[in-house]
Structure formats: structure tokens, C-alpha cells
Design a protein around this nucleic acid. Sequence first.
DNA 1: TCTTTATATGAACATATTAACATATACGCA
DNA 2: TGCGTATATGTTAATATGTTCATATAAAGA
Lengths: 107, 107
Amino acid sequence: MEEFEVEKALSGEIDEETLFIVTQTFKALGDPTRVRILHLLFQKECSVNEIAETLDIRQSTVSHQLRFLKNLRLVKYRRAGTTLYYSHDDEHVMLILKKMIDHACHS
Amino acid sequence: MEEFEVEKALSGEIDEETLFIVTQTFKALGDPTRVRILHLLFQKECSVNEIAETLDIRQSTVSHQLRFLKNLRLVKYRRAGTTLYYSHDDEHVMLILKKMIDHACHS
DNA sequence: TCTTTATATGAACATATTAACATATACGCA
DNA sequence: TGCGTATATGTTAATATGTTCATATAAAGA
């Protein structure tokens, strides 16, 4: 460990890697389109087209955002023929999302 | 309520205002500088200069971000002469931040 | 193999965000 | 009133982000 890292640790600072994961995850939840998608997947597994039609978003947009969420392991999918059914893949983050929604509702 | 809003409500979609608050709040947590500031304020009340020096960020950057956080009522301050002591102002959001940090650490 | 359907990808564009600099304001004190 | 310190603000430039269009890929079935 470098000297400045020791200083940071002693001062109670978050280590860089953790900070990166935390901010990336919050960033994922900081966009309306992604929150709407996750909220939908909270209720049920959906194909890409179902998501696009239900939320009235273009297919390519949905696909791009799903890739974003997939990279962060926030969603997963199973294949059935040509159809991909997406579902959420991080209970903890979904719980945090739910809490924030409740918090925002009752404020 | 408009017709399309009824449809959204029945379909379990988040209402627009809640969605806005939720995403704004997560956006606040989606930036390394702001997370570092909040994490510091989680530990103790700090003046603007203390924050800037402790985290090695320019004073004007800190001030800008504090205004951002203040607008969302995530921080507050008290004045002592020319010095402003900032502290966090949303227990619930701070708890969510803490949970996410723990989650990221142990993964 | 050809076609159809479902999904992914790449490039381009518009917009949003961030940090930096310079400067302004506010307060306390001589 | 004038000065020094602490903080805020306006502006700008660099970068990041989100959506769209056009197109590519992949699987299933005739």
C-alpha cells in the first residue's frame, strides 16, 4: 500500500475501487429510463420488446440500457428461442431502489 | 388525472414526480466527489475549507457540489462567523449510501 | 437456404455534467 | 472605513451521457 493510501485509510476515506462501484451503481439508478426498466423488472420478468412496449421506449434504447445494467450485474436474462427474458439480478440494489421510491413517495 | 396517467398507475408505473426525485437523489450519489463529501460529513461536521483540504479538492468545486447537495436537502449548514459548518441532513439517504458502500466492499 | 422475428450494435448528434479559473460577496476586526 | 479570510458565483472548456437511426446478428421455421 502506498503512503497516501495509508493516509486515506486512516482518515476514514473510501478506497478507490469501492468508490467506483458505489458511484457506478448509483449512476445506474440516476436515470429515469433505467429506473423505469428496473421497476418493471421488479414486478415481473420481461422480454426486451415487452419492456419497450410497456414503457413506450424504442427497442434500441432499451437494449442499450439493458447492456448498461447487465455490465453492472443488475439484470440477467434467459433465452427462449429468439426471445430474451430479462429479470433483476441484485436483490440488495433492488431493495435500495424500492426504499428510495418509498422515501420519495412519502416526502 | 389524465387517462394515460390512470393507465400508468394501473400498470404499476412510478408517477413522474416520484421518478424525478428518485433519479435526482441517485444522481447526487452517482458522483465520486459528492460521495466523498457526504462520506466525510457522515463522520463529522466540516467547514468548506476542511472538506477541500481533507479531500484535496478545490474550494470552488466543493462549494458548487455543496450547493447541489443543499438543493436536494441532503446537507445543511450552520454559520460561525465567516465559517460555514456543513453536516448531512437526510438520515435516510445517508443510510442508503452506507448500505451501498458496505455492499460494494463485501462483493 | 431464405425469411421472419427478436435483439444487439455502431456512429452521430444533442445535451448534461464536471472541474477549473477568475471574481464577487459576506463577515469580523482593526 | 478598509483589510483579510471564508465562501459563493459566473463562465468556460473538456468530457460524459442518452437517444436515435441504420444496420448487423442470431435463432427458428418453411
